[in-house]
Each structure stands twice: as structure tokens, then as C-alpha cells.
Amino acid sequence: MNSTRTLWITIGTAALLTTALWIGGLVYAVNDVINPKPAPYEGTASPAQPEEENKTTIDIVALGDSLTVGTGDVSGKGYVQNVREKLAAVTKKQVNLIGNYGINGYKTDQLLNDLQKANGVPYGIEKADVVLLTIGGNDLFAVGQDVMNSQTNELDANKVRERLPEPMNRLEQILTRLAQLNPKAKIVYVGVYNPFYDLPEMRPASVHVQEWNDRAFDVANRFPNMVYVPTFDLFQLQFAKYMYSDHFHPNQEGYVRIADRVVQALE
């Protein structure tokens, strides 16, 4: 009698435990459906999203002084159009000149003023893939006015260096502004040369030209999308062959040489 009673108690207890376990499992399962949790990550990383396809065109904006205009090139191309043609040939892409803002006689103060405006030149720069710049030759020419040493008939280096900081600082502001306007475009600053190198009394001016170029190189080196392209040596040994008759600007062949060097920097 007692054994039978104990058996039924045991069976009942087991049944209650089984029911409790079943109900607990049911609640857990329902909760997992209602509030799903992500499964532990065990696979490899999903492939990165493909980058936007490369553009099939390259848009160029050029600005600066008479070298950007192409003064001295009887073909009318100047270095800018030569760059456009040569860059198209090496990249196999359509290269468009969407704006040439070069102005004869332009100096750093004038260009800096243009870049600080809300539209116009800045708008074109923002749309460009490549920005070409020549500036500084007219500033250096102005610096060299009335600085000849009356006793030696040579440039007074001290007077020149007194005048250089102001336009050099503007050059730095110009390059910095360009980088701000378009941090993705390739910005090319074409260095200046001494257009009077063949005159013995003006050859010492090359030192100051190099000081200018050194400053430009230093500033360009701060920005990953900017490059300084030297031109001084292109005219140094065969001056007459590559200079125009005005003794200041390159001729047609001289501009081609500048363009070749710019394209090499962009490749």
C-alpha cells in the first residue's frame, strides 16, 4: 500500500517537472521568435562595395598670368592646350578645358582677390579634376624694379629680399586657398624662371627666382594633391631657342617643353 502510494507520488512529481520544462522551453522559443538575436559571426568579411567607376573625362581649369594665356606662342596653344592634348594622349580619356582664367600681367594680389570671391573662378576650380597655375613672374619683375646697386650696376640683394616676403606670403595664401576649394583635384603650380638669364647683369636674379620657387615647393609639399613643377632649367642653357622675341615669355617650343613636364607630373 505504502509502496503504491510512493510510486504515484513519484510519477506525479515527474509529470509536473516535465510540464514545467515544456512550458519553459515554449516560452523561450516564443521569445526567440518575437525578439530575434543575430547569430554569432563566423564567416569572412563581406566584400567591400565597389568604388565609383573612374571618370572617362578629365576637366581642367587654368588660372594665373600671361603664361596661362599662352602669350608668345604663335600657335595660340600655350602650355595649357598642349597639356590638354598630351594628357588625352597618355590617359586615353577625353580631356576638357572647362575654364582658362589667365590674364596678362596678373600678379598675386589680383589672383588672391579672385579666389576670395563667392563665385566665378572658385566655382570653376571646384568643378575641376586638374588645376593648372602660373603666377609670380610679374611679382618678381616688380620686385626687381629700381633695386640696382649704383656702384656695382647689379641687383641689390638686400633690397630684393626686403620686398620678397609680401608677394611670397600671397603665393602661400593662393596655394592654400586652391587646396581648400578642391582637395580632390590635382593642383599643379608651374614654377617661375629668370627671363633675363642671358644678360650678365641680371643673372644674379636667378638666386631670388629660386628662393621664390623654394617657397612654392615648400607650400605645395604640404598638400597631398598638389605638385610643384620646375621650369627654370628648361630655358637656362638654350635661352634663345625657347624664348619669344619679347624676351619674357616662352615661344611655341618653350610652351611645349613646359607642357611635357606638367604631363609627366600628372601621369
Rank of each mutant, 00 (worst) to 15 (best):
I11R: 07
T19R: 00
T19M: 07
I23N: 00
G25N: 10
D32M: 08
V33G: 09
N35C: 03
P36K: 08
A39H: 07
S46M: 12
P50S: 08
E52W: 14
T57Q: 14
A62S: 15
L63E: 12
G72D: 13
G72N: 10
V74F: 09
G78A: 04
N82F: 09
R84W: 12
Q94W: 06
Q94G: 15
V95P: 06
Y101L: 01
I103D: 07
G105T: 03
Y106D: 04
T108Q: 05
L112R: 12
D114M: 03
G120L: 02
I125L: 04
E126L: 01
A128Q: 03
V131Q: 10
L132N: 11
T134K: 11
G136F: 06
G137L: 14
Q145F: 09
D146V: 00
Q151K: 13
N153T: 02
E154I: 06
D156G: 13
A157N: 14
V160F: 13
P165G: 15
N169Q: 08
L171N: 02
T176A: 03
L178K: 15
V188K: 15
D198S: 02
H208A: 01
W212M: 14
N221Y: 03
N221M: 12
V227M: 13
F232T: 02
L234Y: 10
Q238I: 00
Q238D: 11
S245N: 12
H247R: 10
N251G: 03
Q252I: 05
Y255T: 09
V256Q: 13
V256I: 12
R261M: 11
V262H: 14
